[in-house]
Design a protein around this nucleic acid. Structure first.
Lengths: 140, 140
DNA sequence: AATTAATTTGCCACATTGTTGCAAAGTTGA
DNA sequence: TCAACTTTGCAACAATGTGGCAAATTAATT
């Protein structure tokens, strides 16, 4: 298990440290996207607040995770798929934020449709965020 | 001119104050969406920082403006169209963030397409954010 | 027009979130 | 194993957001 995690970091050109393994593990364990606060809560005092910031920054830069725009002001992060490379994200799937449980899911199967933009505009990235109630919360 | 502004506030069930007229004027003058920091910079020391927060909150609640999710952590606000009502936003248009000038525009004509979501999921709101280069920056 | 009731504003203090510098600890590669 | 380099934790600081309260302003009423 740990070998696999290390391999993931190396593939992204990140040196292997306890901090990074811990945070990577969190991402793999959670189906939902994580905020800085989520991670801080999970690790308790095990990791410094600043270190978490810097780790997320490093993961972002190396293309291991991507961030998800939200209307509230907390940035969410989620693991990228294999098709994502450093500085070039191809996360063309939609994200779903559940109002009830607050969790955000990557809808890997929902491909973002291409749309017409005004002439002279060049589109480099597209984000599609849905808001509502997830399947789990609906049952209750 | 001032009469029209007052009318806009009244229509949204907001009492007319200098602060609100000032901020509303800013929104009407700017084609791009504004952040709290943008407004603070514009008005200088004319308005208190806290007052701006509360004014934006009031505008949001009454449906005069809507906020735009962004991947960075600063919330953007833009005027709503007439179809928006208090507590019920119908801003089903896409937003475009220009990488070069940093400005965010409402693409009023670009309607967000409906997409398929997993069964048991209920969609209440849809946000579509495009990222790239706007027409103005492309010319340069 | 003047008075009253209700709302809004500015100031203060405080909480939360994010950033930078630097020395100590850890990682990588030879 | 050693040296070069990177990462981490701590401290200090900057920026952003929130709540209380008295003074000022607006809206409503007579």
């Amino acid at each position: 298990m740990n070998e696999e995690l290390q391999e993931i970091l190396r593939k992204s050109h990140l040196s292997v440290t306890d901090t990074r393994l811990t945070i990577l593990k969190l991402f793999l364990k959670n189906k939902a996207a994580l905020s800085h606060a989520d991670i801080e809560k999970s690790v308790g005092k095990e990791l410094d607040r600043v270190t978490i910031y810097r780790t997320l920054q490093a993961f972002l830069e190396k293309g291991l995770i991507h961030n998800i725009p939200t209307a509230s002001n907390n940035i969410l992060y989620a693991l990228c798929k294999d098709e994502c490379y450093e500085h070039q994200h191809l996360d063309n799937h939609a994200h779903f934020v559940c109002e009830d449980c607050g969790q955000t899911f990557c809808l890997e199967d929902v491909v973002i449709p291409r749309i017409q933009v005004p002439k002279n505009f060049t589109v480099k990235q597209r984000d599609f965020i849905l808001n509502g109630q997830c399947g789990n919360c609906k049952k209750k």
